[in-house]
Design a protein around this nucleic acid. Sequence first.
DNA 1: CCATACAGGACCAAATTGGTACGATTTGGA
DNA 2: TCCAAATCGTACCAATTTGGTCCTGTATGG
Lengths: 169, 169
Amino acid sequence: MLKLAKLTDYATVVMTAIAAEPAQLHSAQELADRSHLPAATVSKLLKMLAKARLIEATRGAQGGYRLMRSPESITVADVVDAVEGPIAVTSCSIHAGDCSIESSCGTRANWRLINEAIRQALAAVTLAQIAAPMRRAGTMPAENPITFHPRKAKRNSDAPIPATRPAAD
Amino acid sequence: MLKLAKLTDYATVVMTAIAAEPAQLHSAQELADRSHLPAATVSKLLKMLAKARLIEATRGAQGGYRLMRSPESITVADVVDAVEGPIAVTSCSIHAGDCSIESSCGTRANWRLINEAIRQALAAVTLAQIAAPMRRAGTMPAENPITFHPRKAKRNSDAPIPATRPAAD
DNA sequence: CCATACAGGACCAAATTGGTACGATTTGGA
DNA sequence: TCCAAATCGTACCAATTTGGTCCTGTATGG
Ligand code: FES
Ligand code: FES
């Protein structure tokens, strides 16, 4: 479904919760409570995020987690990357040899481009944008922060195919 | 992994094979041969693509599949949509109620934007681009057809993290 | 010295996906 | 007319991935 894992979604929520108060420590328990997620799962997420150096852990009593960067400098691409690993829409977009049909396949390069485009889309949204404001923005973004401008090349919708024209549905 | 299904990858390959000769019919067997994929799998793919009205099936002897649109007007977004269903990076980006934590979650709107951006990224590549040319493009495109320009809302990248107001619960 | 809280696994259960198989249906041609 | 070619559709199984839990260790502060 071209969907990223549910855990990633949760991770974003947890990060947002931390970002709400970047200056202080948050225990896994507290974050679980605020996110309404199972504590064990949150703990797992925190570990992943910590390993990716997005947040910093303080052990011992009164310990907890804290952001290592400002909410403005952490993007969802970072979170996705931390939880899901490298972004790769297809197996063969990164390393060759994953696919058994590379012979007749000329899509690798294109997948790579798409891959990069998606990453940029994710990198365009910061924690700060998610966390606090949500100001004005109704629900339907007529003017969203993410814009995309593909090359305005090919644009004929119904050309060639001069063969027989079957009665479409 | 933010990856789309392997089948989608295959579907693209198959579509490319058809697009190589849009004017004539291709049997599932022939396409399987050209794609070096198991015939059963290709058949399944073809059915999906046919149901999505991307290709058209002709039954009976000498039957086969044929594109319904020109290769220029079919994008990988169409293919993804046909094989994987609607593009949704998160479950709750489309319909509410999928997530149990919507209370403390302010990410829905943002996911939606990201979702849309990704779709546009996929829609920016057509079958025609994948299929034939691949001209010029070395391997690392310094000037790729897919470009992305997020809003330059970035304020400061590394603020000192002042103690913000607690939102409490 | 003990309670707290993270680190890092191992581990299992459930869901999804990849892939296959079989029968039904339609069409063209012998 | 009857058979062969080819798709349609669905049902099914197997493999992989994912979601989630638990346990043991380590560090810190009171
Ligand atoms: S190399 Fe894997 S599908 Fe093209
Ligand atoms: S509503 Fe599902 S994570 Fe936000």
